[in-house]
Structures are given as structure tokens and as C-alpha cells.
Amino acid sequence: MTQIDRRHLLGGAAALAGFISFPGLAQSWPAKPVRFLVPFAPGGSSEIVARSTAGELSKTLGQSVFVENKPGASGNIAMAEAARADDQHTVILGHIGTLAVNPYMYDKLPYDPNKDFKPVSLLAKVPSLYVVHPNLPAKNLKEFIALVKAKPGAMNYGSAGTGSAGHLAMEYLKMTANIFITHIPYKGTGPQLTDLLAGRLEAASVGASAILQHIKAGKLRCIATGSSERLAQLPDVPTVAEQGFPGFEMTQWYGMLAPASMAQANVDKLAAETQKAVKSQASVERLNQDAALAVGGTPAQFAQFIALEQKRWKQVVERAKIKPE
């Protein structure tokens, strides 16, 4: 081999090595474990959806995907951290509260929900269930409303925090049924459930995934579902719409977002793998066990969905005058 040939060979090898290791290329991504931020405390629907998705993604991405709960400030702390992340290996669980409510509830946010993130995929929808402690003498929604109207403001309900899905669901019901019940925000679904199960709270609206086991065990009584149809897991519980409020529907939703700084090639690869992960048999079965509906979909579809939800919840937030507490 001549010296010129050797130079050409070595030059080509160097160029190929540079191509393979060039940061941001989908072929070499992910180069380390992927951090999946969840902006809420453990114990709620958000963790169930995130861990189900992360488990499936870990099988196909070639790197582990680990869930990290980072609650606080209605999800704003984690969202702000994810917005600034530029390591190409941080993603976050988007949610009805952080994407469609906080922009209208807060005068100023430490992140821009539309400019600081790239939608990856809508992961799942979780029906909101309206529940009461068994000690409360209300067997259905009609009886619950009658109790609340008899003593406006005397009863209380808990939520995972101001602007959380549970907060929105109950405020939506309050507006629809023209009732007043006092809101007590917690720092996550887990702490809220502790007090609800102990009877220190009288009512709540919680994602089906987090409380089905407690309903089936008789520790909580479900008086209505926010879904458009009755749930297979609770066939005897009528929807809110069936109980005098036609058209009423309330579901929580969760999706994956990447920081705007993530290379588009990486986002595209992640989106393709996430859609497959959400629709895998294992993921669908896991979510169905908790009455969650696996969705999936493209980044464009998720972006369109977010825009529609922002339009919807802007009206609710303004009408209910929901402000940070």
C-alpha cells in the first residue's frame, strides 16, 4: 500500500469516527441513561404513566430510562429545570396542569410551555373519578351536591396541588353544578390520599389509576366518573353526564416533552420509540389495569392537542378565578 493510499484510508477512518461520535446525531443517541422528570410527588397517575412508558423505552433505546419525581409549585420547578436542560438526555412528563392551566393561572412562569419544549407524544388519558370518604352520607352525585348546597363552604376537598388535574376537575364540577366546597391543596396525590383515606378530607377528584384499589377495597366511595362512558372497572358507577349534566367530561392527560435544545434528530428517534412503547402490549395492559387509556401519536398531533386544551382551560381558569396559593 502506498503512502498516499494509507493517508486516504486513515483520513476516511477519521472522518467516519467523527461522523459516528458527532453529538446530536440520532445514530449515536442516547449515549447515556435518559432522565424522565415527573413534576409531581410519587403515588399518583403521573408516576404510573411515566414508569410504564420508561420501562418499555428502556428495552428499545439501548439505554435505561429512569423516572425522577421533582414536585413543587404546581409542577413549575421541574418544568423550569427541564426547559434549561441541554444535556440531550432529559425529558419531562407534560400534563394538563403544567401545559394548559399554569400559563393562565400564573402571572409569570419560569418557562414557556410552547417555546421551551418540543412535544414528543401524548402518552395516556386517565379518567377523573369523584370520590368521597365512606363516612360521608352521599351514595351518588345528586346526594353529594345536596349536602354541599345545604352548607356552602363547610365541606372540603383535597387535590394534589393548585392547578393539578384534581383541582381542575372539582372546580369544573363546582362551576357546572353551581356549588361551593373548600379547596385544600397538597404537595402531591400521595399526601392527599393519606388524609382522604383517614377521613380528614371529605371528597376529592383523583385519576382512576391512583385510587381504583381503594374504591374496590371499600376505603373510598366513587360517586361519579368524569369519563364520557362508564368504566369497565366500575360498571355500576354512573358518569357525571348521566347524573344530570349532559356533555360533562373530565380526563387527565399526560405526554412526553423534550427541551427545545434537544436536537431534532434525537426528538424524532425518541418520538418513534415512544409511540411504539405506549402501544406495546405490556404497556397497554399495564395502563388498562388502572383504567388509563394508552394514546400515543406523533409530535404534531400532540402539539395540536395541547393547543386545543389551552383554549379550553383558559376559559375555566379565568371563570373560576384560579390563582396560586
Score class of each variant (00 low, 15 high):
177 A>C: 01
181 I>G: 04
183 H>V: 07
241 A>Q: 12
218 G>S: 03
251 T>E: 08
208 A>Q: 07
178 N>Y: 04
241 A>C: 13
245 F>W: 10
178 N>K: 12
237 V>R: 10
179 I>C: 03
268 D>M: 06
271 A>H: 05
208 A>Y: 09
214 H>Y: 13
224 A>D: 07
288 N>R: 14
237 V>N: 10
266 N>F: 06
202 E>T: 10
259 P>Y: 11
185 P>T: 15
265 A>Y: 04
248 F>P: 14
282 A>W: 04
204 A>L: 05
184 I>K: 15
296 G>L: 15
242 E>I: 12
273 E>A: 15
273 E>F: 09
286 R>Q: 04
172 Y>N: 14
291 A>K: 05
198 A>I: 00
250 M>T: 07
206 V>M: 03
185 P>G: 13
239 T>M: 09
179 I>F: 02
262 M>N: 03
279 K>L: 10
223 I>G: 11
210 A>R: 03
239 T>V: 13
172 Y>F: 10
249 E>N: 08
230 R>C: 11
245 F>A: 10
214 H>Q: 12
185 P>L: 15
172 Y>D: 15
252 Q>C: 08
182 T>N: 14
267 V>T: 02
295 V>T: 04
188 G>H: 09
198 A>S: 03
233 Q>S: 14
269 K>R: 15
216 K>Q: 14
286 R>G: 01
221 R>W: 11
220 L>N: 01
284 V>R: 06
253 W>H: 13
232 A>R: 12
195 D>Q: 01
301 Q>R: 09
259 P>F: 08
219 K>C: 06
216 K>G: 01
273 E>R: 12
205 S>P: 09
177 A>Q: 08
243 Q>S: 02
223 I>A: 10
248 F>S: 14
234 L>C: 11
240 V>E: 00
296 G>W: 11
283 S>K: 04
237 V>S: 10
255 G>S: 15
192 Q>M: 13
201 L>S: 02
